[in-house]
Amino acid sequence: MDIISELASMPGVIAAGEYSYRGDRFTYQGQLDPEQARMASIMCRATTMSVHMQSEILESFCEDCGLTPSRGWMVSGPGMTVCVYTNVFAFLDNRQASKNAVMAFMQAKLADKTDDLV
């Protein structure tokens, strides 16, 4: 099973996907329709670009800082959480999903992925 399928089958993960940094491709699995998955890819990509730039600025003030380079991010609402690591995203239902389990899975499986935004 590939990473996206494994992620999408974790408890409380309603959808998982992968987008290209160029913004021209995406794949996904789960409870989103193709248009929603396209929108999710656009949003996640935009935030990843921002976080990447912000981390580079942070790095110039914080050498050997464990916060840089950025590898991922997570935003939480009252019912849902979006987790992104490199160019892979997951939508979580807060009632059923474990942020710790999802992030640990993503960190382990995507550890070798480059953070070059290409």
Binding site: I42, M43, A46, M49, M53, I57
Partner: peptide
């Protein structure tokens, strides 16, 4: 120049979202 390049991509991303 590096900041402007990165910021340009961020503005493009935000403009894409506004359109969407």
């Amino acid at each position: 120049a590096k900041f402007a390049h990165d910021y340009k991509r961020i503005v493009q991303g935000n403009a894409d979202q506004l359109s969407m």
